[in-house]
């Protein structure tokens, strides 16, 4: 027995009629985002994900050496941060060794970080459109940073004024 829907005074303004669900009108269930169905697309058939996975581990190993070395030189040894200045950078980049070091670190860290964020986007973005645009933003930023950094390392001019 229910009288709610046929109230004697009709619908009262501003008062929501009570929500009611029953066997014929069940409440919506909460579905997980992107569940697997028979129509879930099959993969691309390439080894891309495997190479990406391997790259994360291999670049990680190299990055341990490069990043810890970098941090030691920049922040700890020989007076710490206070020594960093134009002259300090110019002095280091005069040597091809440090140029190669910084170039490798730039490329590896950027690609490693970008692929890591690609993973994070794949995990968390729920709608295909969101995923696509977040990845486009990520790839644009990555290409820009890698190219700009590479350009600076190679064209750095200590006599600039």
């Amino acid at each position: 027995m229910s009288t709610e829907s046929t109230s004697a005074i009709g619908e009262v303004e501003g008062v929501e009629p009570p929500r009611r669900y029953d066997a014929d009108h069940p409440a919506p269930v909460i579905e997980p985002p992107r569940k697997r169905t028979g129509k879930t697309p099959k993969g691309s058939g390439t080894n891309f994900e495997m190479y990406a996975w391997l790259f994360m581990r291999l670049s990680g190993i190299v990055l341990v050496v490069l990043v810890i070395g970098h941090l030691l030189i920049q922040l700890v040894l020989d007076g710490g941060v206070s020594k960093i200045g134009f002259a300090f950078v110019a002095g280091r980049w005069a040597s091809p060794f440090w140029q190669v070091w910084d170039l490798t670190m730039l490329w590896l860290a950027m690609l490693h970080g970008a692929n890591g964020l690609r993973t994070v986007i794949n995990d968390y973005a729920e709608r295909d459109n969101t995923r696509f645009w977040l990845k486009m933003l990520l790839y644009t930023a990555t290409v820009f940073t890698v190219l700009l950094g590479t350009l600076v390392i190679f064209t750095f001019d200590p006599n600039i004024r």
Binding site: R36, K42, G43, G45, E49, M50, A52, W53
Partner: peptide, 12 residues
Amino acid sequence: LEILNDRDGVWR
């Protein structure tokens, strides 16, 4: 193995 080499496979 090929199926699990996929985008949604073991590499996740």
